[in-house]
Design a protein around this nucleic acid. Structure first.
Lengths: 223, 223
DNA sequence: TTTCAACTAGGTATTTTTACCTGTTTGCCA
DNA sequence: TGGCAAACAGGTAAAAATACCTAGTTGAAA
């Protein structure tokens, strides 16, 4: 069984080097090269034999690698994409993973690692080195961790209750009915909330509630 | 160098089995056992020698493993926690990773894998099997993917602009000034936004903007 | 037992938002 | 070139939110 590879990188010499390298591996063929994202997409479109794996550089003219990756993954979900770059910023890596990258290779990686990455992505749909995995895990943890510890602007239980209903798009009158209160009371709570959170209006209250986990965006559904 | 292990599981036999197993590994000692989350926390509190690694079952009475994990990770960030369970539901796994789990072991794992997991977490702060890694990656992708493509309630560029300013707590008048428009025009856009998003008021607009990534919570800071 | 914060609720006034309307201009596309 | 959507803007009214007040009750803590 043969693995079909494509490569996208704006540096010709690098492309050629990779082509030679890939050619030297058993059961792998480089089927085409692209020098920017646009060309890559066009070639994927027109190619009779579709690539199994794409080695994708992130910094390219015309259409950058990240955007190309997103489009590719939408069109060809089964395609394996190995991001191949010198960038090592965490956010950059996270963005590529979130966009659906199947693997990540530093440009100064050993040839053996390239081969390993290709074979693993082909077999397991997945190849990341340990440091990348750490970053991935942090990316997952970050979503929850940093927001959990706060709470304290001295929001009382009743105020919190009112705030939650405000976020559910109820008016003060409706909230008053639900809680068996006068609407003046609800307006009082509302006012205190504005003061305590330093908000100017409802928009600020909603953002505060989200930031402080008083409501959870996941529980609000739209069509 | 010795690795200190603790175990929390509600089944006594399982605990004892694990204790024997851990005892058979080089340079590892089981320093205490707990049969529920509460006991685990108490023991961690009172222990003179703190554990390096905790083998943590998720389904326990009193205080379940997930909640215990969250508390532990807040109190002792450097502690390595290996989740040890029969649950294999994706969401469950994701939740433990988000709570800060350093590794994951199925209860039917081979003894060698237990040893490997402990040593890797001790050394790299990290041990996950390939299927878990796949789930992690999916968890990361999910965060962005499902929200990005569903932009389309036909919000126009101008409407989006107005929406962003609404989220920044500006009133229609202020937005009108900023955009050099009549406030009636802004009110018009605002109305269209309510209609298109199916919201009842400003609160709904803010939530919509967040859900559809028209604004990013991270860019809004409170004290 | 006094003190305090939270919860309750009312008054009055202003500003803002929401709800329905109408209408013009502009640029794009079939 | 005719149609259409988007952006623009005005009228009128009602509803809601914001601003700044006062003040009674209650339960817990000092």
């Amino acid at each position: 069984m043969n693995i079909n590879i494509a490569i996208a990188d704006d540096q010709k010499l690098f492309r050629k080097g990779m082509a030679a390298l890939v050619g030297s591996f058993e059961n792998m063929s480089l089927i085409f090269e692209a020098e920017n994202g646009k060309e890559l997409l066009a070639l994927c479109e027109s190619a009779v034999i579709k690539p199994d794996i794409i080695l994708l550089d992130l910094s390219m003219p015309e259409l950058n690698g990240l955007d190309a990756l997103k489009i590719l993954k939408e069109k060809y979900p089964k395609l394996g994409v190995i991001v191949l770059t010198i960038h090592e910023a965490e956010n950059f890596i996270l963005a590529t993973i979130q966009a659906g990258a199947n693997g990540y290779l530093a440009k100064n990686a050993e040839p053996e690692e390239v081969e390993l990455a290709i074979r693993e992505v082909y077999k397991n749909d997945f190849h990341f080195t340990l440091p990348m995995l750490e970053i991935m895990r942090k990316g997952l943890v970050k979503k929850i961790q940093p927001v959990t510890f706060e709470n304290e602007d001295n929001i009382t239980a009743r105020e919190k209750e009112v705030l939650q209903l405000i976020c559910k798009q109820f008016s003060s009158n409706e909230i008053a009915e639900k809680l068996f209160l006068s609407n003046r009371t609800v307006e009082g709570h509302r006012n205190n909330l504005l003061l305590k959170t330093g908000s100017r209006n409802t928009a600020g209250l909603v953002l505060y509630a989200l930031k402080h986990k008083i409501i959870d965006l996941a529980n609000f559904s739209f069509s």
